[in-house]
Design a protein around this nucleic acid. Structure first.
Length: 403
DNA sequence: CCTCCACAGGAAGCGCAGGAGT
DNA sequence: ACTCCTGCGCTTCCTGTGGAGG
């Protein structure tokens, strides 16, 4: 046997060999921003109109963008960011994904780091970074626009908004504006009235794509990214129809397309047709679940696991005078199951209060949905339904911790 | 109508970790 | 090496809520 070190793991073809399917695989990624954004002219125009004062060195209104996942919110904003950057005016747009930068501290730090690398150290006081940012804006007479994607993930958004608004009172030159992006309709309720009215100075709502629009978007990407005659029209139509039925989510549509292309690319023969889209669909659904669950904190995985076990085992829940949906769990019952799941894997279960926090986190991630009990049930509780099939979740978590 | 149930979710506070300042 | 400060995950305590039951 040849020792591994002496063997070439990748052969020459892997580097230089041309793909049968792709011209440029990256084009099919959701992060790719095409030259022209289809079906978003109106939205781009609206955002542009809000941001235009910045180019004249005036403070633009704060902007709040709402719309479901994969409707092009981030894409449109990033598209405009590039255009504004190219103008080379004294406008600095800083994009932050608040799923990662989820507190006032982290966001201020991110801004500070962007304007001056010396401020990238951890542990600096927030007031220090704040002063440095103000100084920088003043000296450069800059309009700073903080783009906060998934703004609902920020834990102390009220404080952050207060800080950023106050900055404008202290600045002699330059200004600070905020663009908040979210897909969570409920989130405005958590804001105090002051932050709400200031963040939502102007609001833009993005509507979901229909099947026709999705088909055109897919077609546009396919033309740039995939070689001619490698995909049939009916495959694109089916791909669009599936995504439109799911949620009108372009990101999902692209993932599906990418997966189907990968399948054909690996297989080495044939083209992408309806059948390939169908196969891709199954594996994409599972991939999405695996990706989310793997990055979940341990305790939240336990809650999800408990829910899956109850769903499979068939708890008492489903038999409550037939009114309740099959598979709807009561939160009290689930907490007990969660505690025993923790015991099984030798984790210390958290308090019921914290467990309720986990539930709302899981709901935010779209892994479960919750409904108030309402009439027919004694007491005040919530019914919990899983968005992904229980057996898939069970498998994924048992793969991590063992059965 | 009142009380109880089964929770929801806010507020306060605690212990720990990790970095800054001395 | 130490003290101070801040963020983070968590518990404890508490008030609120909406329907069932007496």
């Amino acid at each position: 046997m040849v020792p591994l070190a002496d063997k070439e793991i990748f052969d020459e073809d892997d580097f230089s060999g041309e793909s049968r399917v792709y011209i440029n695989r990256d084009v099919l990624s959701a992060h790719y921003i095409p030259e022209t954004l289809l079906h978003r002219d109106k939205e781009i125009e609206k955002i542009k109109r809000v941001l235009i004062p910045a180019l004249r060195n005036q403070r633009p209104n704060n902007l709040f963008i709402y719309g479901k996942t994969g409707v092009g919110k981030t894409c449109c904003v990033k598209y405009l960011m590039e255009k504004i950057d190219a103008q080379k005016k004294n406008v600095k747009m800083i994009y932050t994904n608040c799923r990662i930068y989820n507190s006032q501290y982290k966001i201020i730090q991110k801004i500070a780091e962007t304007i001056s690398p010396e401020l990238s150290k951890q542990g600096l006081q927030i007031s220090h970074m704040y002063e440095e940012i103000l100084k920088w804006i003043n000296e450069n007479e800059t309009i700073l626009i903080a783009v906060l994607d998934e703004v609902d993930m920020i834990k102390d958004l009220n404080e952050l908004m207060y800080t950023l608004i106050r900055a404008n009172d202290e600045l002699k030159k330059g200004a600070v504006s905020v663009v908040g992006i979210t897909n969570n309709a409920m989130f405005q309720r958590k804001l105090d009235p002051r932050s709400k009215s200031s963040l939502c100075e102007t609001e833009i709502v993005f509507h979901t794509y229909d099947a026709l629009q999705l088909a055109e978007i897919l077609d546009q990407r396919a033309k740039i990214g995939i070689k001619t005659n490698m995909i049939t029209d009916s495959a694109i139509k089916l791909n669009a129809a599936i995504a439109a039925a799911e949620s009108g989510d372009a990101r999902y549509a692209l993932k599906l397309l990418l997966k189907a292309c990968d399948i054909v690319d690996e297989r080495g023969i044939g083209i992408i047709d309806e059948h390939e889209i169908e196969i891709a669909r199954k594996s994409v659904d599972e991939d999405i679940a695996i990706e989310i669950i793997n990055t979940l904190p341990q305790q939240q995985q336990m809650v999800l696991y408990a829910a899956a076990m109850l769903n499979i085992g068939g708890g008492k829940y489903a038999k409550l005078d037939g009114k309740i949906d099959d598979g709807a769990l009561m939160s009290g019952e689930l907490y007990e199951k969660y505690c025993s799941a923790c015991e099984k894997y030798h984790f210390k279960p958290r308090s019921a209060r914290w467990y309720r926090q986990y539930l709302s986190d899981l709901e935010m991630l779209g892994l479960i949905t919750m409904v108030e009990s309402g009439a027919g049930v004694r007491g005040h509780t919530r019914f919990i339904k899983m968005t992904y099939p229980a057996h898939i979740i069970k498998e994924i978590i048992e793969k991590i911790y063992g059965a």
